[in-house]
């Protein structure tokens, strides 16, 4: 277990709202090992964003951590004093956010922002500037020295996202969280960013937690995948396992819906009918039951546990239990 970097252990997070507690995350468990790329997939509202903000503890004021731990190098981040938490942010854990157009401060030059985030370094201003230019060069920004003096609005979206990656990797973090870093970009840029991320991951040897709803990207980039649905983990395992032998109906439907997997011409693109359940009033039993075409009486009665099916593959579905076959 020495090579485990991040362990999410039975984490449950609620949002207190006027309608009652919104159960955004329920009993989430998975881990990220050193130097590994783990993907998190799920549709909008499945709790991906809550998960990341919980790891960084940059949560909204109405967030309540109900149970569980977020252990980073064995230390529970949820118990850490704010000072120590701030020491981790941007140093050991970095993040690249979703929308590159909004991620930089619009009134400070890129150079200024890249100097600011080196606030822990004792290096001289000139050295920090050189380091910033070197990082911009590493993500493929041409003429980086001169472009440090430019402002975010003078860069294209793709460039801004590469700058965000450069900023995140500058401190050589152990863990990089990438929150849908390519969703706001077009397909050609997406490939560029993914390839760049892959190269840099080799170079810096950091672990990446890659959040996306693009299955193709996940399959390409990640070692392991965690599939989330309505605030819970429904399946997790090696990429190959998940894509070739999905053990949860939701994962199967998700793969069927991926445009990359559709082989035949169809008039109507496949979808998963129904809606995500209301997180403030969760029904009993399996959360996917209403949208599942293989639902059984047992699914309404009991919540299926996340079960180890074989080495490196877990799923939470009654279909995988022996009783189902009978």
């Amino acid at each position: 277990m020495t090579d485990t970097l991040l362990e999410i252990d039975r984490l449950s997070v609620d949002y207190e709202t006027a309608r009652g507690d919104l159960k955004a995350l329920r009993d989430i468990s998975f881990d990220v090992r050193k130097g590994e790329i783990v993907g998190i997939v799920g549709e909008s509202g499945c709790g991906k964003s809550t998960l990341i903000s919980s790891i960084l503890r940059l949560t909204a004021p109405n967030t309540r951590f109900r149970q569980g731990e977020v252990r980073f190098r064995g230390e529970d981040l949820l118990q850490l004093p704010e000072r120590k938490m701030r020491d981790l942010r941007g140093a050991d854990i970095s993040i690249v956010f979703q929308d590159p157009m909004q991620t930089h401060n619009p009134v400070l030059s890129i150079g200024q922002q890249m100097l600011d985030i080196q606030h822990r370094s004792k290096a001289s201003k000139a050295d920090k500037r050189a380091r910033a230019a070197q990082m911009l060069g590493a993500v493929g920004i041409p003429d980086p020295e001169a472009r440090l003096d430019q402002f975010p609005h003078e860069f294209s979206g793709g460039m801004r996202q590469r700058i965000a990656i450069a900023m995140a990797l500058m401190s050589e973090p152990d863990l990089l969280i990438a929150d849908e870093p390519t969703t706001a970009l077009d397909a050609t840029l997406e490939v560029q960013i993914i390839e760049r991320l892959q190269e840099l991951q080799q170079e810096f040897d950091c672990a990446i937690l890659f959040i996306s709803h693009h299955l193709g990207v996940i399959a390409e980039l990640c070692d392991r995948v965690v599939v989330m649905y309505a605030g819970a983990v429904v399946e997790s395992g090696e990429v190959r396992e998940i894509f070739h032998d999905p053990k949860h109906p939701y994962t199967r439907r998700l793969i069927d819906c991926d445009p990359g997997h559709i082989k035949e011409r169809a008039r109507v693109l496949p979808t998963i009918p129904g809606e995500v359940p209301d997180l403030a009033n969760l029904p009993g039993g399996c959360i996917f039951r209403d949208r599942c075409d293989q639902a059984m009486p047992r699914c309404a009665a009991e919540v299926p546990p996340l079960e180890q099916l074989k080495d490196g593959h877990q799923a939470a579905c009654w279909l995988n239990h022996k009783e189902a076959a009978e």
């Binding site: 960084l56 940059l58 930089h104 009134v107 400070l108 985030i117 900023m167």
Partner: peptide
């Protein structure tokens, strides 16, 4: 979002408020 970014880089809250936010 950019305020969240500044915080995610561990920039001191006082600097986030006084420079990153107030200037805008």
């Amino acid at each position: 979002s950019h305020i969240r970014t500044a915080r995610a880089f561990g920039i001191h809250e006082r600097r986030v408020v006084m420079v990153y936010a107030l200037r805008i």
